[in-house]
Amino acid sequence: MVENRPVLTALAHAVLILGVLVVAFPVWLAFVASTHPSTTFLSGLVPLWPGDHWRETYGQMFGAGLSTSGAPPLGLMMGNSLIMALSIALGKIAISILSAFAIVFFRFPFRHLAFWLIFVTLMLPVEVRIVPTFKVVADLGMLNSYAGLAVPLIASATATFLFRQVFLTIPDELVEAARIDGAGPLKFFRDILLPLSRTNMAALFVILFIYGWNQYIWPLIVTTDESLYTVVMGIKRMVDVADAEPQWNYVMATATLAMLPPVLVVVAMQRLFVKGLIEQEK
């Protein structure tokens, strides 16, 4: 702060507090809705203060799910989301660090071609090539499987570039010293590169976990089997009831729990999250 202007500082606080409230309001309403019985939502205005019906709502969602709108129990959907998010995050990190290692520390024919092939994936978001990609997955018999949910999404240009940047900052002397000490490429990778990129891996993991957890269109088209539904797409199934209002208390209980894991990850690992987010765009 350059000069002391209490009015401006007070205004800044006011803007921030208002911002925080506006940003939090939709989530507050969702949580409140999940604590009231369905009858509250038949008419009138949504409640603004939590009710006492939360045990029934969450109990129903965790116990039996909502079979009328084809939603399996919540625990199952959350488990599927967790499997999908972890496989995508760990898969992306594993294959990207290997490719960055090859591109940075080896000289070989077609190195540039490999780099550009990976780069091209940046320009092909799944939404754009959805129909032919679906066909490939169907032809490979991967519909309705965890492999079909995760594998097609784990190629990653951004993660490869990030690790490439990290590796390029490692001094040549370190590589030479390792070589003189008799370390082959794999030993160098395991004993020097992996420990050096630990923080970057953790930061990337936070971003990729959120990315994987929040996937929507892909699980929506590759799973028709209820036991493989993820929680984010499960909400869509619950909202899509023909000729009737959705059962808001159940929908909002699901939404609240669908938000919880990724939001907790961001809040608990804020420093790593910010690092990952800002580095990813470099």
Binding site: I210, P262, V263
Partner: peptide, 9 residues
């Protein structure tokens, strides 16, 4: 934290 909320949600 809203960054972590899925677009669908």
């Amino acid at each position: 934290w809203p960054y972590a909320v899925a677009p669908a949600v």
